[in-house]
Design a protein around this nucleic acid. Structure first.
Length: 568
RNA sequence: CGGGGCAUGGCUCAGCUUGGUAGAGCACCUGGCUUGGGACCAGGGGGUCGCAGGUUCGAAUCCUGCUGCUCCGACCA
């Protein structure tokens, strides 16, 4: 390809709408342009990178016995009503009607369609396992699209669905995908961790997220500093902290005027924060009041709480609801709430000795509360958020909290969709059973963004070789110098013949412009043809990643370029 | 959904407070000159000032409504 023909409009300035490096650089380097909020056009450079990522994905999916198909983006509402997700997805789904008023949606995911496809065709265990996948645009009406391709409303996703005859089969399929994902992201050159995660709206039991480590990432993960444990903080188990053994003192009510916050209470009572119990009240989608108690220096993990009380949605409770249950906001206590109130106490709280907590009276707290003795019948669960330096639930070493970009997720769905949609088969005994499913997604467009987040500097993108739009950019310093252009053309032809992805920057621009663009777009290698190359047979090869420059002769440079590419 | 900010040429932004008929840099076109890190000189094209309404002799500027974009929040009493 010749730069003079390439549609890659670069910008010298940073467009005001872009916040993070991947978004800014994709706009500046001429990779994407916005069509609407969270909706982008991919220009030639981006499309090349995306196709390279897709190629890697396809190779690994095919290698794991996946078969590629293409499902419709536009999906009928009936299937979604059948699975019960038409309303569950709700606002997040783009919905439309045809001229007869029939309802459709733009597919946010494809469990319904694929299950429908398979239920009509798969009859026997002999047809299993079956692994089908597609690479397809997905649509989600995000509350707040942001960060360019990181959280768009239209995005490219690879989704594979596995169908097995039993749980053991699912385990095999799951493992295959887990391993394939590890290969895919490694081949893309990304730094990532598979992390344990909550299954959220998709449902199902076991699930891992593949997270590209990046400080601008939207998900927070807990990573063990010693073993390979890693989990989304929504999921990360917290170990129970045992207080040192003390004699239990009698429960005592104490005035704490105006001390509504934990900070104010411990300040007033002169207690360490580890001796305090914090109260948080939620209401769920059925308006049930849920009162939660965690240690003063801990925070409630809403996802764990949702799972503990089997709620779909939590919000902060209305004050009058708390009052009606006998609680006083700011002084809430597990002791003395009305019967029927759901009280959840964190495991660590149950081990506390002589702690302070609210007294359900204005300006009053209890001291010397001993939960096991004083709290009566409550639900005891791990409902706190893991914190930095907490003990790893696997090995006991300390965990670190870091951020990342979720680029893939693997789910064991089980029979959730197959039973809802009655997708069954006959087993060896002629018995009808629901298919056991798994689903496995990769955010292809997001992976591109994640790579840029991981690999860039102040001058632009630094592509890993495997997903660079071109591997080598060839820059004749002076496009009007015939000798340089002739040599550049020769090298261009030769590199293409060698199967190297090369772009010839034949634009009639000053060298500075071409160098700046080369750095911005981020080709892994730059070959410069200037006077030195023509007159002294010194062909310059520059590595984008580290700025290292080497010179080689016309006879040797191809080999050198190949070996350099191998390392990138 | 709540709150803030913004909307002026392809991009970044000034002008708005104090109303008088639109400007800079970059980009683009023509010519010249230049060629190892976003040159320079000369000339040139391009804007219903987001949309609709109102106030006024006169509105980019003041007022109202709408739309879009963007940031923060929707988390711990």
């Amino acid at each position: 390809m010749r730069a003079s023909k390439l549609y890659a409009p670069t910008l010298r300035e940073v467009p005001a709408e872009a916040e993070i490096p991947s978004h800014q650089l994709m706009l500046r380097a001429g990779f994407i342009r916005k069509a609407a909020g969270g909706v982008y056009t991919y220009l030639p450079l981006a499309w090349r990178t995306l196709r390279k990522i897709e190629k890697i994905v396809r190779e690994e999916m095919d290698g794991a016995d996946g078969q590629e198909i293409a499902m419709p983006i536009m999906q009928p509402s009936e299937l979604w009503r059948e699975s019960g997700r038409w309303d569950v997805f709700g606002e997040e789904m783009f919905k439309l009607n045809d001229r007869h008023g029939r309802e459709f949606c733009l597919g946010p995911t494809h469990e319904e369609i694929i299950t429908d496809l398979v239920r009509n065709e798969v009859r026997s265990y002999k047809q299993l396992p079956l692994l089908l996948y597609q690479i397809q645009n997905k649509y989600r009406d995000e509350i707040r699209p942001r960060f360019g391709l990181m959280r768009g409303r239209e995005f490219i996703m690879k989704d594979l669905y596995s169908f097995d005859k039993d749980e053991d089969g699912l385990d095999v399929s799951y493992k295959k995908m887990y391993d394939a994902y590890t290969k895919i992201f490694s081949r893309c050159g990304l730094v990532f961790r598979p992390v344990e995660a909550d299954s959220g709206a998709i449902g199902g039991s076991n699930t891992h997220e593949f997270t590209a480590l990046a400080k601008n990432g939207e998900s927070e993960i807990a990573v063990c500093t010693k073993c390979d444990y890693a989990a989304n903080i929504e999921k990360a188990e917290s170990v129970v902290l045992y207080s040192k053994n003390e004699d239990e003192l009698p429960l005592q009510k104490t005035a704490t005027p105006n001390a509504k916050t934990i900070e104010a209470v411990i300040e007033y009572l002169k207690l360490p924060i580890e001796k305090s119990i914090k109260a948080v009240a939620f209401q769920d989608e059925k308006d049930r009041l849920i009162c939660v108690f965690v240690r003063g220096d801990h925070e409630v993990n809403e996802i764990k709480l949702q799972n503990a009380v089997e709620a779909v949605n939590l919000r902060m409770a209305d004050e009058n609801v708390i009052l009606a249950a006998g609680g006083i906001p700011g002084f809430m206590s597990p002791i003395g709430l009305k019967k029927g109130t759901i009280v959840v106490v964190d495991e660590t709280v149950m081990e506390m000795k002589n702690a302070c907590c609210g007294a359900n009276e204005t300006d009053m707290h209890y001291v010397n509360a001993n939960p096991k003795r004083d709290f009566g019948e409550v639900m005891v669960k791990d409902v706190r958020l893991i914190q930095k330096n907490d003990a790893c639930p696997h090995c006991g070493a300390s965990v670190d909290i870091t951020r990342g970009i979720e680029i893939g997720q693997v789910f064991k769905l089980g029979i959730k969709y197959s039973s809802a949609l009655r997708a069954t088969f006959l087993d060896e005994n002629g018995k009808e059973k629901p298919l056991v499913m798994g689903c496995y997604g990769i955010g292809v467009s997001r992976t591109m963004a994640a790579a840029i987040e991981q690999y860039h500097d102040e001058n632009g993108i630094i592509w890993p070789r495997a997903i660079a739009p071109y591997e080598v950019v060839l820059v004749p310093v002076n496009a009007k110098n015939e000798a340089q252009m002739k040599l550049a053309e020769e090298i261009y032809t030769e590199l293409k013949k060698e199967g190297i992805d090369v772009l010839l920057d034949d634009r009639k621009e000053r060298p500075g412009v071409k160098f700046k663009d080369a750095d911005l777009i981020g080709y892994p290698l730059r070959v410069t043809i200037g006077p030195k190359a023509v007159e002294e047979d010194k062909i310059e090869i520059k590595v984008r990643k580290n700025g290292k420059t080497i010179y080689d002769t016309k006879d040797g440079y191809v080999k050198n370029i190949k070996s350099l590419l191998e390392e990138l």
